[in-house]
Amino acid sequence: MLSFIIRRTIYAIIAMWAVSVISFVIINLPAGDFVTTYIATQAATGNVILADEAENLRDVYGLNDPIYVQYVKWITRIVRGELGFSFEFNAPVRQVIEQNLANTLLLALGSVVFIWIVGIPIGIYSAVKQYSPGDYVATFLGFLGLGIPDFLIALVVAYLVFDHFGILLTGLYSAEYLTAPWSFGKALDLAQHLVLPVIILGTAGTASLIRIMRANLLDELKKPYVTTARAKGVTEWQLIMKYPVRYALNPVLSLTAYILPFLISGSVVLSYVLDLPTVGRDFLRALTAQDIYLSGAIILGTGWLTIIGTFFSDLLLAWVDPRIRLEGD
């Protein structure tokens, strides 16, 4: 088990390094550099920056160094938590991200919980009652959920709710709580506002989890160990929950790591449509404004989140599956 953890840690570090290189490349892809952009923005407000002043700035920011030196300086600053400056928000990148990080994680985690609570039981039912009317309904709804983009569902739902109840389904806080300090009332208000975005953001994930769970379980239900348990006189539901469902859940556990960053990037358009204060919404703004430090930090952050998530889900998988845990002992 220890060798397993050490091996996974090394893999994770290598992957994080690779992601950081890719993010750095992306940040440096647009023509010109940070100073060019700076000159352009200053020029737009009427300030003219002279050539030697620009050169001076390039020296300060190390833009004349070889590319690998620039990378080392950049990654060192990132690790120290200095993420650069966002021109679009006119604030440090770190401050921009931190502002909406809690909302973003709340929305993503809420969706994961929703996906699990809805997707797993329906998936189990669909597999055990294969080709039953319930299975067909679940399959049909599943494909609908997969096929319709989140933002379209959001638009339709927001329109219907506004049209029928006159409630504006945007934002995460009511106006009276927006700047208010945290209280029970504010938390309740937030929870109410979160319900719909969580469900909408979770539809695609739920639909695919239903399909995955159903397929996994259908495979497992045919395995000899199920027949052995049945021959012992265990009731059908008990044996299904104890054996094949346990087997079918393992791959689902490792999938959760991928769901999380997918939800954060998936929330981009949804947040825009519903005006949710999330990192995803800021990401879209940063991309359209070519705010490279902010977008780079978000790309890097999402990438690292995936790797860390995978690392933890591997540990979780090893913890529940003795075949992995005892490997190499």
């Binding site: 395995k223 000899p224 160990y225 052995t228 021959a231 054996y243 087997y247 529940v320 003795p322 075949r323």
Partner: peptide, 16 residues
Amino acid sequence: ISMIFQEPMTSFSSLH
């Protein structure tokens, strides 16, 4: 009435 099966390797759950 008990029963035993052909493939002992796959007739047990590896997770229990």
